[in-house]
Structures are given as structure tokens and as C-alpha cells.
Computed example of a mutant assay.
Amino acid sequence: MSQQYSVTFVNNSTNLGDVCVFQKDPNIGVANVQSLAWFTKTTHPNTKAIFKWNIDYSFVWAETGELVPGVQFIASEVLEADLTQNNAVNLSYLNKAYTFTKQKTEQPLGSLLIHQDPNIPLKQASVGIGMSGNGTFAVQAQPNLDLTFTPHPKYYISFGTFTEGEVLDIAQMTKFAELKFDPGVYSITAILNADNTWTIKSTNQVNKELVAARANNPTAQRLP
């Protein structure tokens, strides 16, 4: 299994809402690709939520109808994939049902390839890739169209009203922050402050600051 990453979200705002972790990738190589709400969780003020994942890829598809912001992508099939083997698959429509077929290894390695069969109906399903079991990017399924996803994962966090799997309208989202993992750092903490701004630090750094603060505040708690 690949390296595990984690983010601890701390809700220091005064609002009940949904924290959403998602990915953006303008250079993924597929036109009209949509970012999905990868992980979400409802949190109260003064609470926290922890998200963990591995960089383990998959192919995903769902019967979404037209893929537009707000539509929920609930994967009907999640097929494990890898950038160096089993990186290609067909989306087929057999006996009036979608399924992945003919998984194999193809060039270019480092990309995830989806070949769509000639009989794929228009505007009924969507197909894409996922990570750690959940969909991350999706595009409208179309007949005879080959898709080459070349992922460069960048992670972001937002807070508001979200449903896991929904198509995000990135252009309309203004209050989100990048979850940047520096070399050798695999756990970070994202704090939503009282003024609804973000503070992003390594979890190790946050814990060091809390240890130092305990001298003056014995009730300070160490984050996991």
C-alpha cells in the first residue's frame, strides 16, 4: 500500500457546516473534466474531523444524467488501477447496463486511459478516476471517445454546504485553501478560524505549538 496522508480539520468558526476535501488539476489532460467533492463531513463549532487517504487510483463510473455542478456522482463501479500497470480500461454498455471491461496495461505509462465503446448513450452516464476509493474527477461519457487522465494530485479544503460526490462549481468557490504537503510531511492540520480564514500547518508543527502553549494553558489538547 502507498504512503498514507491525512488532514485534521479544526472548526474554530461559529458555524455548523460541511468540510469538503477535493482535488483540482488543470493539467490532467481531459477536456471538460469536473472536480468532485472527494470527502465531506458535517462539523459543529469547536469540533474536528480527520480524513486519511493513500494515493491509490481507480476507475469510476456513475449514471448521473447530464454532468453539471450540483449533480451527485455516486460510483456504481470502482475498479482499482495503477499508473504503471492495469492503467487502461473500456467503458462498455452491455445488455442495457454499463460496466468496465478489458482492463490492461497500455502506453503511456503514468496515465489512466478509458476507452468508450461505440454504443455508449449520450448524457446518461459519467466516467472518471478516483483515489483511495472515492471519485475525484469525472467527465460526461460519450461514444467512441478515448480519455487519457494524467493526474498531478493537488488537494484543497473548503467549508460550506457540500454532499460527498457532488460536482463542484470551482469557478464559484472563493473560500478554499490548498493542502500543501511539503517533502517528508504526510499529516497537516487545516484550521478554520473565527473570521472564516484558513490556517494550514503541518500537524507536527501544530502539536509543537500546543506543547509550548501548555505552560500557560494546561487545558490545551494535543491533536492526533
Rank of each mutant, 00 (worst) to 15 (best):
E164H: 10
L67W: 09
G130K: 11
L109G: 05
L79K: 14
D82Y: 12
S76R: 15
L94G: 00
G135L: 10
K154L: 03
L168P: 09
N46T: 05
L36D: 05
I74K: 13
V127P: 04
G160P: 11
T150G: 01
N46A: 11
L168C: 07
N46Y: 09
Q116F: 08
I129H: 01
D117R: 07
Q140W: 08
G133M: 08
K104N: 14
E80S: 15
T42S: 13
K154W: 02
S58T: 04
Q140C: 05
A62W: 02
F73T: 10
V139C: 03
W61A: 01
Q107N: 14
E106V: 15
I55R: 10
G70P: 12
D146I: 10
A125E: 02
A49E: 11
G160K: 04
S58L: 01
W38M: 09
Y57D: 01
G160H: 06
N54C: 14
D117V: 13
T148A: 14
S132P: 11
T43H: 01
H152F: 10
P153C: 07
A125H: 06
K102C: 02
G130L: 07
A37R: 10
F137E: 00
A75C: 11
A141R: 07
T47F: 02
L36Q: 13
Q124Y: 03
W38D: 09
N119S: 12
A88F: 02
I55K: 13
I129S: 01
A171E: 14
Q116W: 06
N95G: 03
T163F: 13
